[in-house]
């Protein structure tokens, strides 16, 4: 009976460890992904659209 209890406890601890590991990995992955997204959104390519729009607006205003 005690052996069965130990085995069940062992399995539970193992399962908890696996769950924590997966959760941790997910958090890390989401951190990496959100940082990448943040950096990509600041790239010159991502910024071009806003710059071109305002530059065109300014040129139009100045009659160029």
């Amino acid at each position: 009976m005690l052996t069965v209890l130990f085995i069940v406890m062992g399995v539970l601890i193992l399962a908890l460890g696996v769950v924590m590991m997966i959760g941790n990995r997910r958090i890390n992955e989401s951190g990496v992904r959100s940082f990448r997204r943040h950096i990509d959104a600041l790239s010159p390519e991502a910024r071009r659209e806003v710059h071109d729009r305002v530059r065109a607006q300014r040129d139009k205003k100045e009659g160029r």
Binding site: H38, A41, A46, E49
Partner: peptide, 8 residues
């Protein structure tokens, strides 16, 4: 323009 990506 990139509201969600730059929230941080």
């Amino acid at each position: 323009e990139h509201y969600d990506a730059l929230k941080n």
